[in-house]
Design a protein around this nucleic acid. Structure first.
Length: 388
DNA sequence: GTATTAATGGGAGACGCAGC
DNA sequence: GCTGCGTCTCCCATTAATAC
């Protein structure tokens, strides 16, 4: 059975199982929510539940704890975090329903059903997650919001101790931090937790657009760590102990202590985002005055000179498919022009925000057949099309 | 009407790491 | 060295939205 249909079948079975137990259950209208169903506990609490199909393999029921989709950068894996409270995992092979707190699930999880060949403290005993023995769940298991007020205060005090000033923005967890040298950087606050000799944090890329650095607080050590926003992928792992084998990509938490890395390296007024750096270099090579904007509350990255003043420029990566480079910003409000950076060809294209409604395609390869509607990418190259 | 994308979903294999 | 878990990275299918 193809996967989508199998997911729907699992969801139907789970709803039936809940109803059979007399549990009030509702489904969100449409499919835009990240949870599949909402169930009401006897105490009246409403829980957001994500239904997962459990694959029975090697004596375990395995399920994914992240949603997957693709974009121009390839596969994107997004954890559910606060979007759901619990996973309901149904194994069709075993005809068994499990309930697992979201906080206990990483990108995937294996529930051991059959006895292992050898014991291991990491083994997740499936019987501990049987639905009938864990309903209604203890709602205190739910994840505490990140970063938490204590973290905000601790991180702020850590910056203060280094002589750095911290300013609030309109976003709850993004702050502007002024270094002692007068440089402004955008810092998003978060928390790390220790698991198996590592400090871990997830969902780092969701703030990449408006963040230069992450200030991550470890409450158990009362220590703040500072990492560049583009140094890690969607998640972060910093070693707190000494592994037997050090890999080329092993990173140690000690090296990221705020006190050890402050002030962060980097050219003043340059953003660490590669696309922004490429756009700035291209503007400068053209002799166009350009300034980087370090303010997470505005939707643009650069102010670039034109004959009649400055344009507000948002730098975005474009995805290339079947010979077309695509651009589809979430919102055009407050932006005069877009610079689309095509990493493969190291080319920047400039597009007037008024030129398109919601998206635009720039053809970088010859089309199968001519069409007057085709936007030839070469005509939008920054060198030819600035000012837009 | 056609082409193309993002978003949802599951399946599978490779690999690193830790414990035994 | 073996085993098991977790992570990562592919793959595929479907649906809805959107541009042209």
């Amino acid at each position: 059975m193809e996967s989508h249909r199998k997911g729907e079948l699992t969801e139907a079975v789970v709803v039936a199982e809940l109803k059979r137990r007399g549990i009030p259950v509702s489904r969100p209208f449409g499919d835009n929510e990240r949870y599949d169903v909402v169930a009401e506990t006897p105490g009246g609490a409403l829980l957001k539940l994500q239904v997962k199909t459990g694959r029975f393999e090697r004596g375990t029921v395995v399920f994914d704890g992240v949603s997957t989709h693709t974009n121009s950068q390839g596969n994107v894996y997004k954890p559910y975090e606060d979007d759901v409270d619990y996973f309901l995992v149904y194994s069709d092979d075993l005809e068994t329903l499990y309930i697992v707190p979201e906080s206990r699930v990483g990108s995937s999880m294996a529930l051991r059903v059959e006895a292992p060949k050898q014991t291991d403290p990491k083994i997740n005993d499936a019987s501990a997650y049987l639905f009938d023995e864990n309903w209604p769940p203890d709602t205190d298991e739910r994840v505490q919001p990140v970063p938490g007020n204590g973290a905000v205060q601790a991180v702020t005090e850590a910056f203060d101790a280094l002589g750095a000033s911290v300013y609030r923005t309109e976003s709850d967890d993004v702050y502007i931090v002024e270094t002692g040298e007068g440089r402004l950087i955008r810092v998003r606050l978060g928390r790390v937790s220790e698991q198996g000799g590592r400090l871990r944090a997830g969902d780092l890329q969701s703030g990449l657009r408006t963040t230069d650095y992450y200030a991550l607080y470890d409450p158990s050590r009362e220590q703040t760590y500072l990492v560049a926003a583009d140094e890690f992928g969607a998640s972060l792992s910093l070693r707190t102990d000494e592994p037997e084998q050090i890999q080329h990509d092993t990173r140690f938490a000690e090296d990221y202590r705020l006190e050890a890395v402050w002030p962060p390296d980097g050219v003043p007024n340059a953003s660490p985002r590669p696309a922004v750096g490429a756009a700035v270099a291209r503007f400068e090579s053209l002799g166009v005055p350009v300034g980087v904007v370090h303010d997470g509350s505005v939707p643009y990255d650069l102010l670039a000179a034109a004959e009649d003043g400055f344009r507000r420029v948002a730098v975005v990566p474009g995805w290339c498919s079947r010979g077309c480079l695509r651009l589809k910003p979430e919102s055009k409000a407050g932006v005069d022009a877009y610079v689309v950076y095509h990493r493969d060809s190291d080319t920047c294209y400039a597009v007037d925000a008024d030129r398109f409604a919601r998206s635009i395609s720039l053809r970088v390869e010859p089309p199968a057949k001519p069409d007057p509607r085709i936007n030839e990418a070469s005509e939008f190259e920054l060198e030819r099309n600035w000012p837009v």
